[in-house]
């Protein structure tokens, strides 16, 4: 049988109570901060990428698939995504002395409607890179549809950004594309990559 303890509490006991609760609350706070740190480490962990030929270096998300076999310098995709795979792509384009940023983007806009469904340019506006370099940003949308009709997937609306930066006679186009529903949440990956980008 359990024994009932009826005790008067002295100051020492009260101090021990307070200490126990204080340590517990501190542990909860530290534990939560550690959890957030683990989350940031898992989501935003990066590894370096260097391309000596193109003169580009940057840090990209660890779990993203890196692909260099295309008409781009590098393409990074988050293959864990269900539906449209969030993509960051870097392309180099020639930029003659008299060609404006708008001219270069117009060339891009000629070929894209052939490859992307319902391609629509939303805006072209000035943009400032994280290091203060002036750039131009083009915002566009398109519809991504699964080519295999047997999979019966619902088409996805994708929002894209092209950030164009001039480097001598070359233009660097950094493209970011993501499902419209997750665009804002995914933007942090793009911004972190731009912060680490050197060219």
């Amino acid at each position: 049988m359990a024994v009932i303890e009826i005790l008067g509490r002295d100051e020492r006991t009260e101090r021990q109570f307070r200490l126990g609760h204080l340590l517990t609350v501190a542990l909860i706070v530290v534990g939560l901060l550690y959890g957030l740190n683990l989350r940031d480490g898992a989501i935003f962990a990066t590894q370096p990428y260097n391309n000596v030929r193109a003169g580009i270096s940057m840090d990209y998300p660890v779990a993203w698939l890196l692909d260099t076999d295309g008409d781009y310098v590098v393409r990074l995709r988050d293959m864990r995504r269900i539906g449209y795979k969030t993509t960051i792509q870097i392309t180099l384009a020639p930029a003659g002395g008299s060609a404006s940023n708008r001219n270069i983007l117009d060339v891009v806009n000629i070929s894209r409607p052939l490859r992307l469904n319902s391609y629509d340019v939303q805006a072209i506006e000035p943009y400032t890179m994280p290091d203060g370099t002036a750039a131009t940003r083009m915002t566009y949308t398109f519809v991504d549809d699964e080519p295999n009709k047997f999979l019966q997937t619902v088409p996805v609306v994708v929002i894209g950004w092209d950030v164009l930066v001039r480097r001598g006679e070359q233009a660097l186009i950094v493209t970011f594309r993501s499902d419209a529903n997750t665009f804002d949440a995914d933007l942090v990956f793009f911004e972190r990559l731009l912060s680490s980008l050197e060219f």
């Binding site: 303890e5 006991t13 021990q16 109570f17 200490l19 126990g20 609760h21 340590l23 517990t24 501190a26 542990l27 909860i28 534990g31």
Partner: peptide, 17 residues
């Protein structure tokens, strides 16, 4: 433990962990 053995005040944070 904290209530009945307050000397072992570190038991509570330990059990929470």
């Amino acid at each position: 433990e904290l209530r009945f053995q307050p000397k072992l005040y570190y038991t509570l944070p330990l059990t929470l962990l």
